[in-house]
């Protein structure tokens, strides 16, 4: 369940370089290749090429975190706990970027950065708060075994809530947020999906990096407790 095991064929430094290169390639395509304006949203639509990939990546990462949490609950693996926690942290980064780029876009398209009646904005904000709560909760639990188990329970509960929030909003919300953008040319669409892939690869590299940092920290704590706290030391 460790991200390093799934992606062992690609060393982490190469993965990071690949991710950044693909994101820079997306930036190049957005600046020089795709049309500068769209029918209704004019040039403000360009931020969509960064907003959409972050939104998709954070959703996928939260679902992955939920699946890893199920694995943690069935095996009790401490490493799976670290993998889930790092996936949530990187997902939170993606969610924050989604919110910020969304607000910049909303300011350009609607004249204000936040509209309360748009329940789609609200869903992303809820998700952000929910997973921020997960992060804060981890800091409050001191016992690592208890922290792993409780965090896994939260990870599953919150992952269930992701589609629940999505459908609740579809049921109750008025929608002023564009569900899809009418990208006229096939090239615009392929750039959109190229960007999504590029960001996702970069986020996966961040996940591996963060996982490695958490694993090292956990090993250091274990060493401190077992070796350095021996009598006579």
């Amino acid at each position: 369940m460790k991200p390093s095991n799934w992606l062992a064929f690609l060393p982490l430094p190469a993965h990071l370089v690949l991710g950044w290169a693909l994101v820079l390639a997306t930036l190049y395509l957005v600046c020089f290749a795709v049309p500068m304006q769209e029918e209704t949203l004019q040039e403000s639509y360009l931020i969509f090429y960064f907003h959409f990939p972050s939104a998709i990546s954070c959703l996928v990462l939260f679902v992955i975190a939920g699946l890893v949490c199920i694995y943690q609950l069935s095996t009790g693996s401490q490493r799976a706990d670290l993998a889930a926690a790092s996936a949530v942290e990187v997902g939170l980064l993606g969610c924050t970027i989604t919110l910020v780029t969304g607000m910049v876009w909303a300011k350009a398209a609607w004249g204000k950065p936040w509209i309360w009646h748009d329940k789609r904005l609200l869903t992303v904000a809820i998700m952000w708060f929910t997973y921020l709560g997960y992060y804060l909760f981890r800091m409050a639990v001191e016992n690592p075994v208890q922290r792993a188990r409780y965090s896994a329970v939260l990870g599953v509960l919150f992952a269930i809530n992701v589609p629940l929030v999505w459908f609740a909003i579809r049921l109750f919300g008025q929608v002023s947020h564009p569900m899809t953008i009418n990208l006229q040319s096939p090239f615009m669409k392929s750039t959109q999906w190229f960007g999504a892939l590029a960001f996702f690869i970069l986020y996966l590299a961040f996940w591996r990096l963060r996982y490695r940092a958490l694993a090292l920290k956990s090993d250091a704590e274990w060493l401190e407790e077992t070796v350095f706290s021996q009598p006579g030391r």
Binding site: K119, L122, I126, M127, F129, T130, G133, Y134, L136, F137, A140, V141, Y150, V153, L154, L157, F158, N161, L164, V165, A168, I169, F172
Partner: peptide, 30 residues
């Protein structure tokens, strides 16, 4: 479920609210 986890934690009551309220937003909207 959240109450069972947060009871006994440092600042447990506050953490319960931080975890529960976002989870309840769809129900509150309904």
């Amino acid at each position: 479920v959240l109450a069972a986890m947060t009871t006994g934690l440092r600042g447990g009551e506050l953490i319960l609210r931080v975890l529960l309220f976002p989870l309840m937003v769809p129900a509150v909207i309904a």
